[in-house]
Design a protein around this nucleic acid. Structure first.
Length: 634
RNA sequence: GCCACUGUAGCUCAGGGGUAGAGCACUCGAUUCGUAAUCGAGCGGUCGUCGGUUCAAAUCCGACCAGUGGCUCCA
């Protein structure tokens, strides 16, 4: 066989991965978790194929962590079966941050159950049961899982050409493709996190199973770090920070719709202002109605499928739900486009809107600002000729990435191509995908291909940003649309003096302002750069004698266009603490020395007592420059 | 929409079948302070809503509403 370093080794026939590792050295034998044979991860205990390329996976390999977590799921099931012998067994895969297992049990698991199960798991680990793999035929599999309808259903779906394998660790046997760690004793650092309901096969018409989530690591420190990260992200949770910094509130009378305080509104307005500034040239900001007759949704095709997600409004004359709040801007933009005859010379025409939208999300889906019923998109529709697509997409990509950079956010691009369910012929899709791909290639940026993930009306590019703590969010999108121009019978007069169909690009950068602000809150942990901060400077006179000088400074800051507040009550210590907790970028302290000299003692957020005394004029200019330049400070 | 959990003062939380408690916030008074909580007093809730059980319910039960964790959904 060949090792991954290219060297060749001879081993006796039927030698296993474990023996292979041992042949190299005892250290590797201990560290080995699984083995990769010709690219496929396998159990250490399986015989190696003659002539195969072999790599020993150790605790350092990400694939080994998956194996560990998959085995952790089995250990979980082992424990659950001991405590709840009647439990049906669903699926138990490794996931990004851990693993889960679904069980069919008569009642949901309680926190006490989880504690008991975790204790039981420790015993299973202690027992160090080997994971034993067995190949069985269909009849044997059916017999073995005769008492578990979920497993029987799964077995029935397996193709005749598939090898059916079962794995046993101690008392527990599961239908499973594997691979697994050699024995349960390798599972040292595991933690159950939560229990929740989940539909069998992810199908909301099927039965609800009880899912237990957990995570596992090879190293104690890694587990501790992971749990610490979970705590940290809880601290950054935008719902918590939003309350602590008094940015927005949700009240039961308007589920899924935020009440923005003046502080939250300042952030909101700042984002809209940036978008306006960046779209000063070449864009046309428009406003269209919020309430529409259903005829519009019939034209757009939304009335049939998506009506249940729209807020319908009763017409008092007809007594019918003939009107609806708009859930999207697209159709109204198309209508406005169609109010005039357009020349090819005008294109591309770019409409932008920040109107409020309403979507009746199912109650269980609502979550803080990330999933709301009322929101505003930075919605843009571009009407253009097909030959203009590459240049326009390039322009949009630059725009979007440039925008994210303002916040220190990096984006990854995804190219989504024709889905199974789609309109238009292959020639249209070839042209559309070709144009998008060409534009993507021109950016020189790496991108991921998501084949079949496009919209039914055209291919798209999605932008995933990664925030400060490494979480990915799908934000921006560039979608080509060949369907709407047909439905709305849109046209332009070409150079040849004939009517042509334009193509439409749907573009969003923030997604929705609500969701984007949620992401920013968590990204910055509430410590916004000065240009975004709801309160940019807080002026603190030390004593009453400096009140006048401090008030003058506050006015000066405001005159310069900054958001500044004067705080004169309570002790200086109290106000410093308050200012730090409110994450105000600059605390401008004015004592007698400063009042006399026309200076200010600046305490920068996070810099502690390292204050800087500077002329008031200089301070104002500095903050104005930082805010105007949208610098990521302090 | 589905499963589970939660719902006590503006916030964080304690209590718990016999007529509600702390800290912070807020108000008032004193203090006028040089970089992360000055001291004191006071105001404030009928315990998410509605209904049931009970001599008695905030406490037990049910329904509903909202939130949280998931599932489903996200044009």
């Amino acid at each position: 066989m060949t090792l991954t370093d290219g060297s060749q080794r001879q081993l006796p026939a039927g030698a296993t991965g474990a023996e292979r590792a041992a042949a190299i050295g005892p250290g590797l034998a201990r560290a080995a978790v699984a083995v990769k044979v010709d690219g496929a991860v396998r159990d250490l205990g399986r015989p190696l194929d003659d002539g195969a390329t072999v790599a020993i996976l150790t605790e350092r390999d990400p694939e080994a962590l998956e194996v560990l977590r998959h085995s952790a799921a089995h250990v979980l099931a082992t424990a659950v079966r001991e405590l709840f012998p009647e439990a049906g067994i669903g699926f138990g895969p490794p996931i990004d941050d851990g693993f889960y297992y679904d069980f069919a049990v008569p009642r949901p698991f309680t926190p006490d159950d989880l504690a008991a199960i975790e204790a039981r798991m420790a015993a299973v680990v202690e027992a160090d049961h080997p994971f034993e793999r067995e190949v069985v035929d269909r009849d044997a599999a059916n017999r073995r899982f005769a008492d578990d309808p979920l497993k029987l259903e799964r077995i029935a779906e397996l193709g005749d050409d598939e090898t059916i394998t079962v794995y046993t660790d101690g008392p527990f046997t599961d239908l499973c493709r594997g691979p697994h760690i050699p024995s349960t004793g390798r599972l040292k650092h595991v933690k159950l996190l939560s229990a929740a309901g989940a539909y069998w096969r992810g199908d909301s018409s099927r039965q609800m199973l009880q899912r237990i989530y957990g995570t596992a690591f090879f190293k104690k420190d890694d587990l501790a770090q992971h749990l610490h990260r979970l705590e940290e992200s809880k601290k950054r949770d935008h719902r918590r920070v939003g309350r602590e910094l008094d940015l927005f509130h949700f009240l039961p009378v308007a589920p899924g719709a935020a009440f923005w305080t003046e502080r939250g509104t300042a952030i909101y307005n700042e984002l809209v202002a940036v978008m306006r500034e960046l779209q000063r040239d070449g864009y046309r900001e428009i406003r269209t109605p919020l309430l529409f007759n259903k005829a519009l949704w019939e034209t757009s095709g939304h009335w049939g499928k998506y009506r249940e997600n729209m807020f319908l409004v009763l017409d008092s004359e007809t007594g019918e739900h003939d009107f609806s709040l708009k859930p999207m801007n697209c159709p109204s933009h198309h209508l406005l486009y169609a109010t005039a005859k357009h020349s090819y010379r005008e294109l591309p025409i770019r409409y932008v809107t920040y109107d409020v939208l309403h979507r009746n999300e199912v109650s269980g889906a609502l979550s803080g600002l990330t999933r709301v019923r009322q929101f505003a998109q930075d919605d843009c529709h571009i009407y253009l000729r097909e030959d203009q697509i590459p240049v326009e997409v390039q322009r949009l990509t630059d725009f979007i990435l440039g925008y994210y950079r303002l916040f220190g956010l990096e984006a990854r691009l995804k190219f989504a191509t024709r889905p199974e369910q789609r309109i238009g012929d292959d020639a249209m899709w070839d042209r559309a995908e070709g144009a998008l791909r060409e534009a993507l290639e021109r950016t020189g940026l790496p991108y991921e291909l998501k084949a079949g993930d496009g919209a039914f009306y055209g291919p798209k590019i999605d932008f995933d940003v990664t925030d400060a703590i490494g979480r990915a969010w799908q934000l921006g999108t560039i979608q080509l649309d060949y369907a709407a121009p047909e439905r709305f019978d849109l046209g332009y007069v070409g150079e040849d003096n004939h009517e042509h169909r334009p193509v439409i690009i749907h573009r969003a950068v923030n997604g929705s302002f609500e969701r984007f602000i949620a992401i920013l809150i968590e990204h910055f942990a509430g410590a916004f750069p000065v240009w975004l901060a709801p309160e940019q400077v807080r002026v603190l006179p030390i004593g009453e004698d400096q009140h006048e000088a401090a008030a003058a400074l506050t006015t000066r800051l405001r005159d310069a266009g900054l958001r500044a507040e004067l705080h004169a009550r309570e002790t200086l210590n109290y106000r410093i603490r308050e200012g730090e907790l409110a994450k105000v970028p600059y605390l401008a302290v004015v004592g007698q020395r400063e009042a006399d000299a026309g200076t200010v003692a600046v305490r920068t957020r996070g810099a502690g007592t390292k204050q800087q005394v500077m002329p008031a004029e200089e301070f104002v200019a500095k903050v104005v420059a930082e805010a105007r330049g949208r610098e990521l400070v302090p």
